[in-house]
Design a protein around this nucleic acid. Structure first.
Lengths: 222, 222
DNA sequence: TCGTTAATGCACTAACTGGTTACTTGTTAT
DNA sequence: ATAACAAGTAACCAGTTAGTGCATTAACGA
């Protein structure tokens, strides 16, 4: 994640280092390739050789940096959670009116899932494995607490202003906001067959987002 | 499974045949074992040898009856869909008042997911594979249409009676009913970490069901 | 300039995996 | 009884798979 060169000893003439060896860059390429491969095939279905090839790195490097296939998966999963929680914090919902804040959160969640489809697949894969990798992560817990309290604050402000009914559990609300977007997208393939619709058409996506915002606002309405 | 003696040499006196060789029983054991193995490890993670062992059948039998690992998966997936759709049809919602019918459907969906956790995992696995197995099934489509029209009827009846607002899309509603139960259960492992709660405790499950019923009724309320 | 350390590459393996070949044995209609 | 067929078995195979041992090479501080 660091970008600057470490040995700023006034020697490196080229600002963009044309290194033949670059640990950070290699690591980053591996992480990127692995994220896509794990998302596409799940932890069990992903192939280490394929990841190495996609990353234009030697397979040996994967074991050098990440110890094992599962170690690599764990890093990627942790990064994925930190990424979404960081993006959520940047929303600055405290400056908005409660209703607008909530609508913005629903919209953000939807857009994030749409733009980062690997997130959903990684989470699915992790749940198939009973969250044994995420369990080891302490960072994720810290970020999660901030996230829950963010929603709790919106609910409190809304209740105080009389626009939301009181007593809504922020955790249940969080789960519901995630659910109505997540389910639609993760099950879009079987859904297309069951409902005989193209669920990913532009207008279908817009309609679903509108429906979801409506669902959440009705749920908390005073 | 079989227990009786084999040497019933005369005319088969028992109508329930105590066969030492029983194609149907073997097939059924394979299906049952495979359902559990696929649900536990996904299509890619499931091992054919393990399925054979669990089913107390020879691996060759799997290929004899189901052609391939994917053929077996397809059969199981199709059965799973037919099972849930059949159970839904038996609910007889047309005899109930619209609100009660909807509540009963939400409750049924929740209970079904709880009692048949393999269903969720199988669907997840199938979506990872872009529904390529389900696509081949015609039965599923027929059953699905009946399911959608069932919900549409409830909505129409409710709107006519003035208890539901008009214009609610039955497909969006169906997706939402499934989503708020499905997401909670499939992501219960990562959810337990993120929200630092035991999501599967008895009272947590009851609370979630109440919340879900409330969500759906508020969504369609006039 | 040189020695140390980190990055990289190649070739290898031991265990698996889905699928098959070749065979034996039970069941049933005649 | 027995031929014909269905049910069942064990051993095996060819291709993969995650993971390693070891040699090589670049970077960099002294």
């Amino acid at each position: 994640m660091e970008s600057a060169e470490k040995g700023a000893t006034e020697k490196p003439p080229a600002p963009t280092r044309p290194r033949t060896r670059d640990a950070e860059a290699t690591k980053a390429r591996i992480l990127d390739a692995a994220k896509r491969e794990f998302a596409k095939n799940g932890l069990g279905g992903a192939r280490v050789d394929v990841i190495a090839e996609k990353a234009r790195a030697n397979k040996r490097m994967i074991y050098h940096y990440f110890e094992s296939k599962e170690g690599l998966f764990q890093t990627i999963l942790e990064n994925a959670y930190v990424d979404i929680r960081t993006a959520e914090q940047k929303l600055n919902l405290d400056h908005l009116a409660p209703k607008e804040a909530l609508e913005r959160l629903v919209r953000f969640t939807w857009d994030y899932y749409l733009k980062n489809p690997e997130f959903i697949t990684l989470v699915n894969s992790e749940n198939l494995h009973r969250a044994k990798h995420l369990k080891k992560s302490e960072v994720v817990k810290v970020y999660s607490r901030k996230f829950v309290s963010m929603v709790a604050t919106i609910l409190d402000r809304g209740a105080a202003a009389g626009v939301f009914r009181p007593g809504v559990d922020p955790v249940q609300l969080n789960i519901t906001i995630a659910a109505i977007g997540y389910y639609y997208l993760t099950n879009r393939f079987t859904g297309a067959i069951v409902f005989e619709r193209d669920l990913m058409a532009k207008d279908a996506l817009e309609e679903r987002l509108r429906f979801n915002i409506d669902t959440i606002l009705r749920l908390v309405a005073a």
